[in-house]
């Protein structure tokens, strides 16, 4: 059985994927996770998860090009340029 291991480097930090181990059951998985991802003081916590328990999601359909859902659908650079332009004009007018 394959277990995915996530480790936390310091308290308060998010757990990040560290790697996978093969183990016959949970007791072996714990022992092997400790040895491979914890014995050098590189982790303060581990999540050891059977691979089958992970729900994988891959396909993100975007048939209608709804780019307003995405950050790249909104060009901050252009908006910022326009806003600065407006501010400059307004300042010149008030002078």
């Amino acid at each position: 059985m394959v277990y995915e291991v996530f480790r936390q480097e310091r308290k308060g930090q998010p757990y990040a994927h560290a790697g996978a181990i093969a183990a016959p059951d949970q007791a072996f998985a714990e022992a092997y996770a400790r040895e491979q991802y914890g014995r050098r003081g590189e982790s303060v916590g581990l999540w050891v998860v059977p691979r089958q328990a992970i729900l994988e999601v891959h396909d993100f359909v975007d048939e209608l090009e709804r780019n307003y859902h995405r950050v790249d659908g909104y060009s901050l650079r252009d908006k910022l340029k326009e806003a600065r332009e407006r501010a400059r004009t307004a300042a010149a007018r008030d002078r």
Binding site: I21, A22, A23, F28, A31, Y32, E35, Q36, R39
Partner: peptide, 11 residues
């Protein structure tokens, strides 16, 4: 007998 055990037993 297998890789994970190799690491653990060596440790």
């Amino acid at each position: 007998p297998f890789l994970e055990e190799d690491v653990a037993f060596s440790s």
